Amino acid sequence: MDAGATIDAVRDQTETERDRLGSDKVLIAATGATLETEAVLTAATTREAGLADTLGQWAAETDSDVATQFKTAAEAATERADRIGGDAGDSDGFIDHLETVSGTARRVGAALVAAPLVADRFYLQVVSFFINEADENRADTFREIRREASALDDGMTALEHLSESDREAAAAAATDAIGAAYDDYAETLEAMGLDPKPIC
């Protein structure tokens, strides 16, 4: 399984969770049902700042070629957090999960594969929020942030540095991380009395 096939396998295994993480309920969960501009900016900043902190720590701890991808991704997340300009709050379940991941291969899967796939769904709804708010400038900003945050270039490069068995470990860790993001989302909504499953 090469790098591209590894990412495709993760996509296939997490299709349901990612679809639900891209629903219009994701911002309800992320903001505690406070669907206002500042709350949305805080949710987005919190995710990027938490990702940057975790990746920066991993870059310092990693003694392999993959350290470069962790460092690059950390710097990019920091830049996005600065551009969003909100006040970071308490980390969510996805970032909390990342902090528990150990081993280079598993960290590659969790942060450089899973995080972009989760970001793609999250920022889809952030863009929609600002379109609905008739704030076209912020909608454009978040379209660009979505494109950057969901890019898998660092993940592809890092996976290419790994052995096939390590890529399998990375795929499993990515699947676990997306599962953690979904579980946090579902539990938050259920605590509000909402069903995380789509209404058909």
Score class of each variant (00 low, 15 high):
46 T>G: 15
8 D>R: 13
153 D>H: 12
198 P>D: 02
125 Q>K: 11
102 S>P: 11
86 G>R: 03
193 G>A: 02
181 A>I: 05
66 V>P: 06
82 D>I: 07
91 S>C: 07
28 I>C: 08
196 P>E: 06
39 A>I: 03
112 L>M: 12
124 L>N: 15
46 T>P: 14
62 T>S: 15
171 A>Q: 05
9 A>E: 05
59 A>P: 09
11 R>Q: 05
80 R>A: 09
97 H>V: 08
170 A>P: 10
40 V>E: 00
156 M>D: 07
52 A>V: 08
93 G>H: 07
158 A>L: 13
46 T>L: 10
142 F>T: 03
18 R>L: 11
71 K>A: 15
66 V>R: 03
34 T>F: 08
189 L>S: 05
94 F>R: 01
139 A>M: 03
72 T>N: 11
93 G>A: 09
144 E>Y: 11
7 I>R: 09
129 F>N: 03
42 T>W: 00
147 R>M: 12
60 A>K: 15
114 A>T: 10
157 T>K: 14
75 E>R: 06
47 R>N: 12
78 T>D: 03
117 L>D: 00
38 E>L: 04
1 M>W: 12
97 H>G: 12
176 D>I: 08
24 D>Y: 10
42 T>Q: 06
89 G>M: 02
45 T>G: 06
105 A>V: 13
37 T>H: 04
188 T>S: 09
151 A>Q: 09
173 A>N: 07
73 A>T: 09
26 V>R: 14
115 A>H: 04
190 E>W: 07
1 M>L: 13
156 M>S: 08
103 G>Q: 08
65 D>F: 13
24 D>L: 07
55 L>R: 09
